[in-house]
Amino acid sequence: MIARVNFLPDERSHEATRLLPYVMAVMVYLSALALMGSMVLHRSFSEWTEALSNRLTIQITTPDPALREAETADVTRLLQQTPGIDFIHRLNKVEIENLLEPWLGEGNVTSDLPLPVMIDVTVSRTMAVNLDALRGMMAGISENIHLDDHQQWLGRFVKLMDAVEYTALGVLSLVVMATVCIVIFGTKAGMAENRETISIMHHLGAEDSMIARAFQRRFMRYGLKGGAIGLVLAFITLVSLMSLSRAMMAGLVRLPDMPVAEGAVLLVIPLLAALLCMVTARITVMRGLNRMV
């Protein structure tokens, strides 16, 4: 039964647009990598900044062990009397060695290596602590006491995070623009290839929108097909990269897991690619047909 006549020849016989799904696959691959990379980094940055935002690290580097212990006791007392300090934890030797091992290598932390006293302080999120006053009081105990609120490092970190995210957005914009250009080019080539068919259909009474629908359906399929291929490749690449990074950076930096919920957004990319192809093809065809008699 003749349900619907597909007046455009089979896709496989279209020399001009046959490879378009693969170009779309590359575009979606790049988009997915940019987007997913941005998501993973965003999550990493967020976790790291979150972990450090209410933490203080105090180092006491006085060389004389007895004096260092006395100063440690004074600092601890001061911290206990300071409102807004939730938790004070002096790191033991093993914990300090664990921190140093990734940098010095396992077993290279010798007993004669002078280690500072390190105190990890958790600050209340609800109550502000006057860090300048605290720093001043600690300086009164000893000039070898260093209070680090990580803000200097975090500031640079946030700037880096912004730069990476803007770069990812820029890559994504370029990919979208390139995709639109490719689809316009492909549509025009497809129209030129089917010029005679379009002319016949016009003479039989086909409306421009009918012809445009045939092209937009075809380009939507290209977008979906290419999008699915690109997404699978991007997923494989991301999983491989994350596994590799985790193995290489074990102990140095804690990499977050793949953001599953946010990652699900990636599934929308092939649909968006298909929509982009469809709309671009329709506009291009309608404009092209408008120039015909």
């Binding site: 003749i2 016989s13 009474g205």
Partner: peptide, 27 residues
């Protein structure tokens, strides 16, 4: 000016299809 990728039936059916004819009726 026939469409080479369509059968004779499909070529002849085009004007009816464009006018919104039903499949069985067209055939």
């Amino acid at each position: 000016r026939l469409l080479d990728h369509l059968t004779a039936v499909e070529n002849v059916a085009l004007p009816l299809w464009l006018s919104g004819g039903k499949g069985t009726e067209i055939e």
